[in-house]
Write a protein that binds this DNA or RNA. Structure first.
Length: 323
DNA sequence: AACGCGACCTGCGAGC
DNA sequence: TGCTCGCAGGTCGCGT
């Protein structure tokens, strides 16, 4: 489910419920969801119990909760306490973070339950639910960022980043995102445009859906070589990514239920607004508006599906070298 | 450096 | 009804 807009919906939903609260108990129902926590479930639980959640931070599709040291958790400054570690969450393909009351029956794919200190009118459990187990939770250190900016989007941005997310580039909606840096690195690559857009180390937050949508909006083919891509084309595809992710974020707001973080917003947004993804055999809307009949084509690329309009996103001609 | 895989998983619908 | 196949929005690590 989650690309940047979906993860941001989760972040926004989560922060008002968990910021300032203490983790009082941890139930690991399926240790496979802690695969990336090398020291095992007991270490995971032991380090979380007693720690206070300071914030919810996102970079790309990575989400983390900076924590106070569990031994120093009784300071009153929930928002400004220092943090050296964080609880990292990645939703993978099917992960959800749900706020639930204790009397709500366990979800079928409930993997980890965090019990939180009671707070007036707030659910007492944060549950990690994940059908496919590509996502997971783990603890990670917080380290200084290397560009002076904040580690990610947060209520109280700090120049610290979760170590396990430090290889992830900023996303196009991040105020500290540098187009010049992105473009320079893009031109240095000898690869295709979609592969580059999906490379979270180059630009983050874009997944298979929004890559296809951005390429469609920008009228660019996924195989367009990056090393010759003009600045205006790179700007166009990034602006397109920004546009589609901003729209999705706005629509995703409707999928957030105040009782829990609802990760079910897919149906609402996608059925209405997608122009290429999942539309194999259907008319390209832009071509149709111009009186041309062109059917969206699906192709295997990078072991996944890519959707393009053969008319307005023509495949680039094979380059034979300039000289 | 880049790429193509496989690995990690469960569940759904289509087709037989 | 039950089987197999292909498919699903991600990331990591290996070999070439």
């Amino acid at each position: 489910m989650p690309e940047l807009p979906e993860v941001e919906v989760v972040r926004r939903g989560l922060v008002s419920w968990v910021r300032g609260r203490t983790i009082t108990g941890v139930d690991v129902l399926d240790p496979r969801s802690l695969r990336r926590h090398a020291l095992g479930p007991e270490d995971f639980a032991g380090n979380l119990e007693g720690a206070r959640v300071l914030d919810v931070v996102r970079r790309g599709k990575f989400l983390w909760l900076p924590l106070t040291d569990s031994t120093a958790a009784d300071r009153g400054d929930a928002g400004t306490g220092t943090a050296a570690v964080a609880l990292m969450a990645h939703l993978g393909m099917s992960g959800q973070l749900l706020m639930q009351d204790p009397d709500v029956p366990d979800e079928k794919h409930l993997k980890v339950r965090l019990r939180l200190s009671p707070a007036e009118g707030m659910p007492e459990q944060l549950r990690f639910v994940d059908q496919r187990i590509f996502g997971g939770l783990f603890l990670t250190s917080l380290i200084p960022t290397d560009d002076g900016g904040p580690g990610g989007l947060a209520e109280t941005p700090l120049p610290l980043i979760a170590e396990e997310a430090s290889h992830i580039a900023r996303d196009p909606l991040d105020p500290y995102f540098s187009f010049d840096t992105f473009y320079g690195r893009l031109r240095a690559r000898r690869t295709g445009l979609k592969r580059a857009l999906l490379d979270q180390g180059l630009v983050s937050g874009i997944g298979n859906i929004y890559a296809d949508e951005a390429l469609w909006l920008a009228k660019l083919h996924y195989a367009r070589p990056t090393d010759t891509l003009r600045r205006a084309d790179a700007e166009r595809v990034l602006d397109a990514a920004r546009e589609v992710m901003t729209d999705a974020l706005a629509a995703g707001g409707t999928s957030f239920d105040s009782l829990y973080v609802n990760v079910n917003g897919a149906s609402g947004y996608f059925s209405r607004s997608l122009n290429s993804y999942g539309r194999e055999g259907q008319e390209c809307r832009r071509c149709a508006a111009a009186g041309i009949v062109s059917l969206i084509k699906r192709e295997q690329f990078m072991n996944r599906s890519s959707y393009t309009c053969p008319v307005c996103q023509p495949r680039p001609r094979p380059s034979r070298g300039r000289w």
